[in-house]
Design a binder for these strands. Structure first.
Lengths: 208, 208
DNA sequence: CTGTTAGCGCATTCAC
DNA sequence: GTGAATGCGCTAACAG
């Protein structure tokens, strides 16, 4: 069986709370008993049960990350960075692929809420209103990624300002004396491409 | 505040246990009260607290997955499939990048054990003995991936039998009448490449 | 600085 | 078929 707080408390004849305090680095604890507890804990091969802890403190130190499909080369770099930063802050991430299906996305959101993750990072699959409403209704902290902010809702967002990017890039060229500038772009039906074009033209117009 | 079992029990004047039974699809429960419970649960926007449940049933329905680095194109396809199958069985996965560092790998293992995942899928970074021992010592179910089984330990493994693969591939060519067969291979210092060569030669010798 | 008590939200005996 | 009681492992008041 797993060894619990109670076991190590019994062994060194202390109360559970004192052991808990020693383990969680509480201020009001003597150096001596703290060391004692820590030593016997590792000696007994104690592994704190974070499930129990989470139930009490109402924090799980894990965040949900919903992306389209990790198989799409667009995502791994992003996921990697997220995981890294999460880790540095002692968080884990639960990775979910929505396959770009709104329905699957909602299912994941539901599960993540059930599991009481501390927050959700969502790269929405298509129309995002339903997911946003769902998250808000259950007051789950979240931030959207790779999406422009919704006009209807007040949400945290991280996304690329394509227009501004193209704008300053073009400006840079102009200001360095270039006058024949081409824009190699994707199909305008795709929103980011249209935005890039806008930024490009904006810069040109400004400098006429 | 979140709505709990107790709240819905109070509302329809039933005991907590009955509500619990209704929600978990227990056999000894009448169709009628079950429907009543289910209805008022969704009406009250009830979200089961899986943390609390996990503490009791000692299952978290989440598994840990440790890979080298999701940024390496070798992994996404694998991760995707794992996540998909896990999902179909109502599991989530916690994704961890070891960056091929044994030390980081152990840190992740520790955390996953603390969080009481039901099992761990590990693609080991280099020497695997320490991780294996660690997992065994804490009797955490695990299976190794992309590694040949350890001779020292009895472990579950899924890996590619490179030698056999090359063997049957070569055999196939021979049996279809080919006699000039080339093996395009990587550096023999890399174990899978050496194994492929072995399989290749084995097939040739057999058919001489 | 330490011990006692209570409770997190749920499942599971055991009675009825 | 349903309810009352107990406990999962831990933290957090409240005293002393």
């Amino acid at each position: 069986m797993d060894v619990r707080l109670k076991d190590i408390a019994k062994k060194i004849n202390l109360s559970e709370s004192t052991v808990s305090r020693a383990l969680t680095d509480h201020p009001r604890i003597s150096k001596k008993t703290k060391k004692l507890v820590l030593d016997t804990a590792s000696e007994m091969n104690y592994h704190p049960n974070l499930i129990a802890k989470s139930l009490v403190i109402k924090k799980t130190k894990t965040i949900g990350l919903i992306i389209g499909d990790i198989t799409n080369p667009f995502y791994p770099e992003i996921v990697k960075s997220i995981e890294e930063i999460a880790n540095n802050n002692h968080f884990n991430i639960i990775l979910c692929n929505s396959d770009y299906k709104a329905e699957k996305e909602i299912e994941h959101l539901k599960m993540l809420i059930y599991k009481r993750v501390d927050g959700i990072l969502l790269m929405p699959a298509g129309k995002k209103n339903k997911s946003i409403m769902y998250l808000k209704d259950n007051n789950m902290p979240f931030t959207l990624m790779d999406t422009t902010p919704s006009e209807k809702y007040d949400t945290n967002c991280v996304f690329i300002d394509q227009e501004y990017g193209a704008y300053i890039a073009t400006l840079f060229l102009i200001e360095n004396g270039h006058s024949k500038i081409a824009l190699v772009n994707g199909p305008l039906a795709i929103s980011p491409c249209q935005q890039m074009k806008n930024g490009f033209l904006k810069a040109l117009k400004k400098k006429i």
